[in-house]
């Protein structure tokens, strides 16, 4: 199976490319990137072809593409790939507007290609284990969820609203909302949010806190802040505390680490040694394409998480809870 990659604007592209290189049954055909020098750099790094135009890539015999462009470009690349009958794995968030997300879903459906959103956290071994525990019923009825998806400030286009759709809130809302929807089969009904630019000299917010009303009378909070300082031992976290009537589950997705102390780095570092979620994500998507199975994370899943992020922006601006059904 041949796979191409569109844009290395998002830093996850490197990891997905590495995953492709590890799969003997997959041929990583090459890279197209609007930024020619970036395309050259990564094509050389992975020893693959650099496509001069998007058309060249889409006219080739690849069956699927992985899109790691800016968030605002997800729609245009997905639509082009779908119309060329290529399956699409697109970086999260699905898009920056509901209209774009709907267009992506529609176009992929009409062209009979698969659309998967890159929510790799679902593939973390610790998250799979947590889901197994939730499914076992040991927690009883779920009452509340406390979650964090902290990060470091990524800079670049991530802090430009036109390209990213926002800042810390859109970047770090979608992963955990996807986990809540998938692990607990709950939907977000209403969102309240506090967000602000409090740390960095950037155009978007760097701190965010969502408080949500979910289906089944469950409530939740999610901290999306880019507030890990450069001295912090790792990039950030994904954590969930799930409160049930008969048990409490605490998940720390990247707790499988040891502490590294190195005189040259001058700070403690957490070395994560748990499973490689990006590899499992890419492999799962390609297996679904090859065997014509439904993808694990659909465009609709991506759309639902985007709704929550957009509701958070409205709520944070108005200082009032916002119903997700009102997000159009």
């Amino acid at each position: 199976m041949k796979v191409g990659m569109i844009s290395f604007a998002h830093l996850h592209a490197e990891s997905y490319a590495s995953a492709l290189m590890q799969m003997p049954e997959v041929e990583f055909s090459g890279i197209y990137d609007e930024d020619q020098s970036r395309a050259r750099k990564w094509a050389e790094r992975f020893g693959v072809k650099q496509f001069a135009t998007l058309k060249d890539l889409l006219d080739s015999d690849i069956e699927a593409v992985i899109i790691c462009s800016t968030n605002a470009d997800h729609c245009r690349y997905t639509v082009a790939a779908a119309e060329a009958k290529k399956h699409v794995l697109v970086e999260k968030p699905i898009a920056t507007t509901i209209q774009d997300a709907n267009k992506m879903i529609e176009t992929c459906k009409n062209n009979g290609v698969k659309l998967q959103i890159a929510f790799p956290v679902r593939y973390l071994p610790s998250v799979l284990e947590a889901k197994r525990i939730v499914d076992s019923g040991q927690l009883g009825r779920i009452l509340a969820i406390k979650a964090t998806n902290h990060g470091s400030m990524p800079g670049g286009w991530f802090v430009e609203k036109e390209l990213a759709g926002g800042g810390a809130v859109i970047d770090h809302t979608v992963h955990v909302i996807d986990l809540i929807r998938w692990m607990l089969e709950l939907e977000v009904k209403e969102v309240y949010a506090e967000y602000d630019r409090l740390i960095h000299d950037i155009p978007t917010e760097d701190c965010g806190l969502l408080t949500m009303e979910l289906t089944n009378n469950v409530f939740a909070t999610l901290d999306t802040s880019w507030n890990r300082p450069s001295a912090y031992p790792t990039w950030g976290d994904v954590t969930m505390t799930i409160i049930g009537t008969t048990g409490v589950l605490e998940l720390d997705g990247f707790a499988q680490k040891y502490d590294l102390y190195n005189n040259e780095i001058k700070k403690a570092q957490w070395e994560y040694w748990g499973g490689d979620m990006d590899y499992f994500l890419v492999r799962d998507f390609l297996l679904a394409c090859k065997n014509n199975l439904p993808v694990k994370v659909s465009g609709e899943d991506g759309l639902k998480t985007l709704e929550v992020a957009l509701a958070a922006y409205k709520a944070g601006k108005d200082h009032q809870p916002v119903k997700t059904e009102d997000i159009k």
């Binding site: 009825r141 009452l143 509340a144 406390k146 309240y192 506090e194 806190l209 408080t211 009378n217 409530f219 939740a220 909070t221 409160i243 009537t245």
Partner: peptide
């Protein structure tokens, strides 16, 4: 739902 335990999250 359940009054045998209490849990709250405040922003």
């Amino acid at each position: 739902d359940y009054n045998r335990l209490e849990y709250a999250l405040v922003s």
